[in-house]
Nucleic acid binder design. Structure first.
Lengths: 344, 344
DNA sequence: TTGAAAGCGCTAACAG
DNA sequence: CTGTTAGCGCTTTCAA
């Protein structure tokens, strides 16, 4: 009858049919401990027949462990976080953990709520990038205090203790600029980020040191600190072009900046890379569908996720004996069409 | 002592301290039924003091209801699904539901696993877009049979019963092509999708009917059915350009196609929109960072999520008495720079 | 208005 | 190898 309350079959149903105890069923299902192969087979068959599906809620309650790890990101409109999440899911699933994803929408309030929700759901651990808006970290410390392990990535704060996964901004920038130099650029501009942001500073330092290393004098007028507002980079690029002393290479702090620069260059009929080379510090693994394709320093996105999960699982296992670690991942230079050949 | 097992405070802890029963505490916490305001106040204060956080797992088990809705999408690398999820989260949170997101990575196997996992977690309902790879729907029917309400969107199948949220592809295409006609295009090409896909067919029909309505004869040579392989659309666009009888307007079936067409046009030094207008049926709300910006028919992304959640919640409430509904949402024409002015 | 008690479905001693 | 039993933390009758 369809009037049957839509209750799911439980181990109890299986036990009754087979005339065994629920513990036997439980053992068979989890292939735990000693159990008669025959009994086990019977249980498995009956489970199949009744279309039994374990109730993770009940199991979690009993075990005080959910095997779920929470991931909170500020947004997943841009390709960066989704890629990292991919890496997280892959390894987490392999380790028999489920992943649940929430996003703070760059809002402190939502982040706070989500943290609460994740805790209510009793996730075994959390991987997160704090929202741009967040300056007060009490909500995070609060659940750390309750014993929930957290691994931070991308947006990390010195005010927080915990494992962190970051990329080597300095070195990535260094490599990028060095590549410009090695392909013949003499006058290299930097479309930089906000000059307070650690990330921007590190990348700028990489830029400066690459110049220095190769005996090129830095020129302050070639460094433009953008505030990441849309359209800003384009304006700066135009400024650089208006200057009689145009650069012959541009290092953009990130993809959006690079794209704006690219559009600007094209609108000015500047040939890339013949007249000006363009290189970017990229979030995404491929700066797709722009022409020419952009030579980039790329972050090992899936790897960030992988490392984060490993760190987290170790912390879950080791509990209070775990000491937080910061892992700095290297970037990779991917040469495409927006810079010249080394041979030139 | 930090040796204290990191167990969380429970209603029992509160009850003990206050010398009341756990049922009283429970009632106070959920402001249920009759309860002395004083008692309630005391409970709330003690909860605060102990930093009590409810255990949703226990509550779910008892109530056989998790207040969690699952969302499964094929991917969230492209902006489409994330936007829809945003809409889902917004309304779901407002209704006191949590949202957990999983992605199938366009894989049938992963989709199947995730469905299992979601069921194990006993989500109250599911909103999903089936993976591209999925042709067998048993795993989906299986949990529908178990009473889990599901709402489908974007990728829907006639083989599945259940509520569906889709956009009006036919009408959107019609509007797009009509816009080209009204802005003076006489010879309009269509970079179409695979000719088996319902979506492609609907959009092509919209294209054809718009031409017909405005007394323009369709020309089969102007319709190029792509298989969505990268680079294909570009080849087709080039073919159209090589033809002595070039089109003066192009309707692209989706964003990637449009972008490839755009690049091709630029590489051929075709002026847009002066020589050729370009319009796209877009997934994203703004076809950002290309130049010129693309006039598009856009889908109401957040709205798709909103409608899906509403449908789902109704089904959760009404249970077996609910009759599946298919909601068709309208598209909107957003005029940007890749088409000419109406005044022309 | 409050308390006692019975579970939700499962796991994990412990005993046989 | 299997069964009995006691909960995990919470909600919800039912009775007081």
């Amino acid at each position: 009858m369809s009037s049957r309350k839509s209750k799911q079959p439980t181990i109890w149903d299986i036990a009754i049919k087979l005339n065994v105890s629920i513990s036997t069923v439980s053992r068979a299902l989890r292939n735990a401990g000693d159990i008669n192969p025959e009994t086990k087979k019977a249980v498995l068959e009956m489970a199949e027949k009744l279309d039994y599906q374990p109730n993770a809620i009940a199991s979690s309650l009993r075990k005080s462990k959910t095997s779920v790890i929470g991931v909170m990101v500020p947004e997943f409109i841009h390709p960066y976080f989704p890629r990292v999440i991919l890496g997280i899911q892959e390894i987490a699933n392999a380790m028999d953990y489920k992943v649940i994803v929430m996003q703070s929408n760059e809002s402190y309030e939502i982040e706070k709520q989500n943290i609460q929700a994740m805790f209510a759901l009793r996730v075994d651990g959390l991987i997160m990038a704090v929202s741009r808006e967040t300056t007060d970290f009490e909500h995070i410390r609060s659940i750390q205090k309750k014993g929930i392990p957290i691994v931070f990535f991308n947006r990390v704060s010195d005010e927080l203790v915990g494992s962190k996964v970051v990329v080597d901004d300095y070195r990535g920038a260094f490599l990028a600029v060095e590549h410009l130099i090695l392909t013949g650029c003499k006058r290299i501009a930097h479309l930089a980020g906000p000059d307070k942001l650690t990330m921007s500073i590190n990348r700028r330092n990489g830029y400066l040191d690459a110049l220095r290393t190769h005996g090129i004098a830095a020129d302050g007028r070639l460094i433009m600190h953008s505030d990441f507002v849309e359209g800003r980079a384009r304006t700066y690029m135009q400024e650089l072009l208006n200057n009689p002393d145009r650069p012959d290479g541009v290092f953009a702090v990130n993809d959006p900046t690079a794209i704006e620069a690219l559009i600007c260059l094209k609108d000015n009929d500047v040939r890339i890379p013949d007249e000006i080379s363009l290189i970017t510090f990229s979030n995404a693994p491929h700066s797709s569908f722009v022409s020419p394709s952009l030579t980039s320093v790329v972050q090992p996105l899936e790897n960030i996720g992988l490392v984060a999960v490993q760190l987290l699982l170790r912390q879950i296992d080791e509990g209070q004996y775990f000491t937080p670690e910061t892992v700095t991942l290297d970037t990779e230079l991917v040469v495409r069409k927006s810079t010249r050949n080394l041979a030139d």
